[in-house]
């Protein structure tokens, strides 16, 4: 078992005293792809932003996030800027808004290389940007580098976003619903791209999605998040075939288009949950994860 790349312990996020995410703990090892699933509003994206140190003003994170042994929470902004894009980078959900509309594609890719001093001058930055665009399978990279974002399709833009995220050769890639805004036909190719990019760099990945099929396809392990808490975790196959928590069972049933209720309608979540989730201000209900699921962090089996 290699040392954990990302160790999250007791991470909580609160908005002006109101907790959004409570007592999160998990780890991602190098080269490992970990899924974080849950419905909208369950705290997935906030978790991602907290890991990046990019929480919007008004939101506060507590606990501990360590990347390769370095504590990120509370680290000075200058240090975080050095890490972002180089050690840890992010793929955003919405490719239509994740690119600057007033900037050509090439400079946007080159930007991350220049910021981190990976290239000596503008010329080589441009060449590296074109190479990065070629690397994500975009057609005619030199011409594309001179295009503006609105001239590209959604799938092409997401490839550019991925090219930017991978350009700095990060050790950890945080993907926040990277394929949710894309056509189903493009999804598979973009996922393959992410998988290949990760494998080439031996990078770890935290893959956030509400799409169980996508997570099953990409991730080795998975965390199920509900109302700001992780309610279940384990190897993807086990969690998705033998779910323990009622919420996970509900998620699975709700995404099973073959199953319907007594009225012939697709199943919804509410029939699987006994009531509203416990508020985050209360201590977490006991969670039945085991050490062999690999969720124990540096301390070893807990």
């Amino acid at each position: 078992m290699s040392a954990a790349l990302l160790e999250v312990e007791g991470l909580s996020v609160a908005a002006e005293g109101r907790p959004l995410v409570g007592d999160l703990r998990f780890a991602v090892r190098s080269g490992e792809r970990v899924g974080l699933i849950g419905e909208s509003g369950s705290g997935k994206s906030v978790t991602a932003l907290a890991l990046m140190g990019l929480l919007p003003p008004g939101l506060r994170a507590g606990g501990s996030v360590r990347l390769a042994g370095r504590e990120l929470l509370g680290a000075p902004e200058a240090e975080l800027s050095r890490l972002r894009g180089a050690q840890v980078s992010m793929v955003f959900q919405e490719p239509m808004t994740a690119l600057n509309p007033t900037m050509r594609i090439g400079p946007q890719v080159a930007e991350v290389l220049q910021v981190h001093g990976r290239v000596p001058d503008r010329r080589s930055a441009w060449q590296a940007a074109v190479a990065a665009l070629a690397d994500v399978g975009l057609p005619d990279p030199p011409a594309l580098a001179r295009a503006y974002p609105h001239q590209l399709s959604g799938g092409q833009r997401q490839r550019v976003v991925i090219a930017i995220a991978l350009a700095g050769d990060p050790a950890l890639l945080v993907c926040d619903e990277p394929t949710s805004a894309l056509d189903v036909t493009v999804q598979g190719r973009v996922l393959e791209l992410i998988r290949r990019g990760l494998a080439e760099r031996g990078a770890g990945c935290l893959f956030i999605s509400h799409d169980l099929a996508v997570v099953a396809d990409v991730c080795e392990r998975v965390l199920v998040m509900h109302a700001g808490r992780v309610v279940e975790a384990g190897p993807t196959r086990r969690v998705l075939t033998r779910p323990q928590h009622p919420y996970t069972r509900g998620l699975l049933a709700a995404s099973d288009l073959g199953r319907t209720d007594e009225h012939g309608r697709l199943l919804t979540m509410d029939r699987f949950l006994a009531g509203p989730p416990p508020p985050l201000t209360e201590p977490a209900p006991p969670w039945q994860g085991t050490a062999e699921d690999g969720w124990a962090t540096s301390g070893g089996g807990s």
Partner: peptide
């Protein structure tokens, strides 16, 4: 999002202001 993306790529505030906000 693109400002968030620029920050996620390690852009400092000055760079964000000049390259992303001003244009």
């Amino acid at each position: 999002d693109f400002v968030l993306a620029a920050r996620a790529a390690g852009r400092r505030p000055w760079g964000v202001a000049v390259r992303h906000v001003l244009p």
